[in-house]
Design a protein around this nucleic acid. Structure first.
Length: 501
DNA sequence: TCTGGGGTCCTAGGACCC
DNA sequence: TCTGGGGTCCTAGGACCC
């Protein structure tokens, strides 16, 4: 990075010439960290947080395992029953029972408490919003920050190219920042640089990342790992490279070298299937991937092949953009495999009601209703039907879902799901501030003309006649039908994260 | 160890239209 | 009157991510 880049000259340069500064902030075993926050006695214990898990039970899957638990082989997505074999429950450690597990080799098992984690996440987000104007909050525990305008790749301490006073200020002027990262680098014996480049070069970007990271820990009380790079995919890999509590910096020009030795599976977008395909082509590392002929990759993987090849070379021009509004809403749930149609219909009815309720809470209409039916062992079937126009109609969701389910009469299923898609956030009536408490009005009046009458029209002919029977829906739904509380699109074009809070 | 639940994006084939 | 091409929408499935 010699002497920085003149404005305008870098715009079209690919990969390493981009001088953007992108952070990927990734909370360490977030759910477990949240549990520790409110139960400090769990601090150094193996902690397993299970979804679908109830205290004392054996069903469910591992949502998050603390690093202490991972040392026993417990991994995300593993069935709780399997985790228990590797790491028995602490409660089962009975000192009087010679057959009981050694307490030192047991762990704490807790059910997911998403509401609490969201509270913690909102504190993390408050820090992130304070530290970056441009950001993408990807999930409850993960975000990308473009902080190009707050820091730079200049070398810290007024080195060769780090002479921009504004930038130095940005890093150090925060009055709240009292710890080492603001102090004079000369006197505080800075932590060794984790830059992938020349190890003795600390950039301002690294200092700012340290600042963000320590603010999160201080203000939200949970640890984070941060990856720093000139683009999103490299930052993502960097944040993973030294977990937990990691800070890995990959300066411009070093991205390809940083990625090269990593297995292909570490490249964002390479899952088990692609990994296998690549291995069959003799491609084992990101370096191999970068060196492979893009045309050959495209033959095997389609357009994705080319994109992965670019990523592996450190070339990722995607801008950090806020998360948009959701494209679909769904609920699904597993059940003991059954072919009992009554059970299946009850399940689908409940899922449909829940999906419809959430859609209404978010003030969104939907035009497609679908189901998912998973046959053992893992055969996924989906069916969907589109309506002539967007609606907000719980009864219709149920009716259509049940109708689609008919195809699976007598079929054994182990999981069922209901989804609405082709969402329409009906942005027309911002004026409806009165609909503020719409989430509460789920009973009684239907809050608007978007309620389609087709399926509930009073005759027994359920939905045989709704397709094409209600071309009037379209006119109707535009004037109302949005409860108006959720789509907070004004915040930044699109709600930065309409999801929670 | 038979795999939880919530999403996104992409592809392919068919229907339909001009 | 067996034959063109392009575009769009829809459905189903697959891969991936957290």
């Amino acid at each position: 990075m010699g002497g920085g880049t003149l404005p305008g000259t870098a715009a079209t340069a690919s990969d390493a010439e981009s001088d953007r500064v992108v952070f990927h902030v990734d909370m360490d075993c977030f759910y477990a960290s949240c549990e520790r926050l409110r139960r400090p006695e769990l601090a150094d214990e193996p902690v397993v947080v299970g979804m679908g898990y109830e205290a004392g039970g054996t069903i469910g899957a591992v949502a998050t395992a603390s690093y202490e638990a991972r040392a026993f082989g417990v991994e995300s997505a593993m069935p709780i029953s399997a985790a228990l074999e590797l790491l028995p429950r602490r409660a089962d450690a009975d000192p009087d029972d010679p057959d009981a597990p050694d307490p030192a080799e047991t762990g704490r098992y807790l059910p997911v408490d998403l509401e609490f984690y969201k509270d913690v996440a909102s504190e993390v987000k408050a820090v992130i919003r304070d530290c970056a104007d441009t950001r993408r909050e990807v999930s409850i525990d993960e975000a990308y920050l473009d902080v190009t305008d707050r820091t730079s790749w200049a070398v810290a301490g007024g080195g060769e190219c780090g002479s921009d006073p504004e930038i130095t200020d940005a890093e150090t002027a925060d009055p709240e920042t009292t710890d080492a990262e603001t102090a004079d680098p000369e006197t505080t014996d800075p932590p060794p640089s984790t830059a992938a480049g020349p190890a003795d070069v600390r950039t301002l970007a690294e200092g700012y990342a340290r600042h963000v990271k320590s603010r999160i820990e201080r203000e939200a009380g949970v640890p984070a790992s941060v990856g720093v790079a000139p683009n999103m995919s490299a930052a993502k890999v960097a944040s993973d490279a030294d977990k937990p509590d990691g800070l890995v910096v990959v300066p411009p020009g070093t991205v390809a070298d940083f990625l090269a030795p990593l297995p292909t599976a570490d490249v964002h977008g390479v899952g088990p299937v692609t990994e296998r395909t690549l291995a069959e082509m003799g491609i084992e590392t990101a370096g191999d991937l970068a060196a492979a002929d893009p045309d050959r990759l495209a033959e095997e993987l389609g357009d994705r092949g080319r994109a992965l090849s670019r990523r592996a070379r450190g070339d990722d021009e995607r801008a950090v953009t806020p998360t948009g509004l959701p494209k679909s809403l769904s609920r699904e749930s597993s059940l003991p495999a059954t072919d009992d149609d009554e059970t299946k219909r009850d399940t689908v009815s409940a899922l449909a009601a829940d999906v419809a309720r959430r859609a209404r809470e978010r003030g969104c209409l939907y035009r497609t209703i679908g189901i998912k039916a998973v046959e053992p062992p893992f055969e996924v079937n989906t069916r969907a039907r589109s309506l002539p126009g967007p609606v907000d109609d719980p009864d219709l969701v149920e009716a259509v879902a049940l109708d689609l389910l008919d195809e699976f009469d007598g079929v054994r299923v182990r999981k069922l799901g209901v989804r609405v898609s082709k969402l329409d956030f009906a942005e027309g009536d911002q004026a409806t501030l009165s609909g503020f408490d719409a989430a509460e009005q789920t009973d009684g009046e239907e809050s608007g003309p978007s309620e389609t009458r087709a399926a509930t029209g009073g005759d027994g002919s359920k939905l045989t006649d709704w397709v094409g029977a209600e071309p009037t829906i379209e006119e109707d739904d535009t004037d109302d039908g949005t409860p108006g509380d959720r789509p907070r699109r004004s915040e930044e074009g699109q709600a930065s994260l309409g999801d929670w809070e």
